[in-house]
Nucleic acid binder design. Structure first.
Length: 439
RNA sequence: CGGGCAGUAGCGCAGUCUGGUAGCGCAUCAGUCUGGGGGACUGGGGGUCGUGGGUUCGAAUCCCGCCUGCCCGACCA
């Protein structure tokens, strides 16, 4: 993308409406525009980030056997009356009527709908297990939206739903999803720690929240440093083998980790002092086993081996995709702007032409740009160097390929890594191979 | 939903108390000089002052209603 032709409005000053750093940076770097309280339009660069995150989420869901569907945003109230949640949900649910005065709602979640669809299609125990997911916009009419996309009313979420024949199989589904989540967050370039969460009225132990560590997080977190630095992408787990899953699960859940809500002082003090980590975190994922609550309420069953009716055991698994954009920024920025992890950055690199109009600079820049017009942002504007640097830092591109008139004559460029500030004087080819290699 | 604050140019703000031709900085447009960390100078364009009503010779300014947004709290992925 050529910056001179882009729809990428950046600002030097902070909009007054934004208080927290991620909200400010998202507005200033031209990712979003607010259109109503808690509702945002995503501009081109913001949309790229959303897509990058979605794609990683998708790949990791697929890799543990979940299948993608796409359910609608609008749902019939009848569905929710069947589960009893239409009355129970309260004013956070946005209720709508169509022209025939039929009650509809903008979905805040999809347990009812997926259970209904599942029930229409699956009849036999032989067809289990099934895990389905979709990435779709949701709406919760929060009393007080704030913090930009971190606490919006409309938000993009991945939600998955597992259906199993019995509790043991449901546990395996839950554990598979935990692995997928650890891999997803690792690929996104952030540390998200799973923490035991409150299971509410259903009880049981199978509920975990995933929190990204960031000083501005809404929850206090306590965890054992043993959870740091584990490479889940490099940890092979046979997701079809319950024993292997159980071993993996023990490894993740044995070290202490809890939010302030679930904090257990006694257990905490059993953690060796040098391994105790305290901080704040933003919840970006939640996995939950809830048994046959919905299959029973909605009378969705399958036929078992002996011809009896069985109510499948369900779990649901959410990742706040749009919230992650804000959360990643909270965890990864400095005074100059955003520092995008490579995997989510809207552009792999920005090419900074320090003297647009200079024959050599233009030629070198064009040469680089043409190698990858899709993933490079080319700053071909006639702004001054300082403006371009400030803008590049603000937008947080992982790499800056700086092309100045002196070095361009020798076919050399300067390559700056946003995260570290390191700069290297390299040939065009050397710079390109570093940038295109990824990190 | 309780408490507080604010709507004036794309963004940040002054002007409102004490009514009298709507301003500043950034951005933008034209030009000159500049040219490696948001540069300088000259000239220009851009505003139903959130909205409806009222008071007044005259309202951004005073009065009343409404809408929208922000902050703190309770709530929440």
């Amino acid at each position: 993308m050529r910056l001179s032709r882009s729809f990428l409005p950046t600002f030097k000053e902070n909009p007054a409406e934004a208080q927290i750093v991620s909200h400010r940076l998202m507005l200033r770097s031209g990712l979003i525009r607010q259109t109503a309280s808690g509702i945002y339009a995503w501009l081109p660069a913001g949309l790229r980030i959303l897509r990058n995150i979605s794609q990683i989420v998708r790949e990791e869901q697929d890799s543990v056997g979940a299948q993608e569907v796409l359910m609608p945003t609008l749902q019939s109230a009848d569905l929710w009356k069947r589960s009893g949640r239409y009355d129970a949900y309260g004013p956070e649910m946005l209720r709508i009527q169509d022209r025939h005065k039929r009650d509809l709602l903008y979905g805040p979640t999809n347990e009812e709908m997926i259970t209904d669809i599942f029930g229409q299609i699956i009849n036999s125990y032989k067809e289990l297990p099934q895990t389905l997911y979709h990435i779709q916009w949701k709406f919760r009419d929060e009393v007080r939206p704030r913090f930009g996309v971190m606490r919006g009313r409309e938000f993009l979420m991945k939600d998955a739903y597992s259906f199993d024949l019995n509790y043991e199989a449901a546990v395996a589904s839950y554990q598979r999803m935990m692995l997928a989540y650890l891999r997803t967050f690792q690929r996104l370039g952030v540390r998200a720690v799973p923490m035991r969460a409150d299971t509410g009225p259903i009880g049981g132990e199978l509920s975990h929240e995933f929190l990204i560590l960031a000083p501005t997080g809404e929850s206090g977190v306590f965890y054992d440093a043993a959870l740091e630095g584990q490479d889940w992408l490099d940890t092979p787990v046979d997701v079809t083998d319950p024993a292997a899953l159980e071993t993996f699960y023990k490894r993740v859940t044995t070290p202490y980790a809890a939010t302030d809500e679930m904090h257990d002082t006694t257990a905490w003090e059993a953690v060796p002092e040098e391994r105790r980590r305290e901080g704040r975190g933003v919840e970006v994922g939640h996995i939950f086993h809830f048994g046959n609550k919905y299959t029973k309420a909605m009378d969705v069953s399958v036929v078992g081996a002996d011809g009896e009716r069985l109510y499948p055991e369900m779990g649901s698994y959410g990742i706040g995709v749009s919230r992650l954009v804000g959360a990643i920024i909270e965890a990864s920025h400095d005074d100059n702007g955003i520092i995008w992890p490579d995997a989510v950055a809207p552009f792999k690199a920005v090419i900074i032409n320090l003297k647009a109009g200079d024959e050599t600079c233009d030629a070198v820049c064009e040469g680089i740009y043409n190698k990858n017009t899709e993933d490079f942002l080319y700053d071909d504007t006639s702004d001054r160097a300082g403006t371009k640097f400030a803008n590049a830092d603000l937008m947080g591109h992982p790499w800056q390929i700086i092309v100045g008139p002196r070095s361009a004559k020798e076919g050399r460029v300067e390559l700056k890594r946003r995260a570290t500030g390191e700069r290297h004087d390299l040939t065009v080819d050397e710079a390109l191979s570093l940038v295109l290699a990824g990190a």
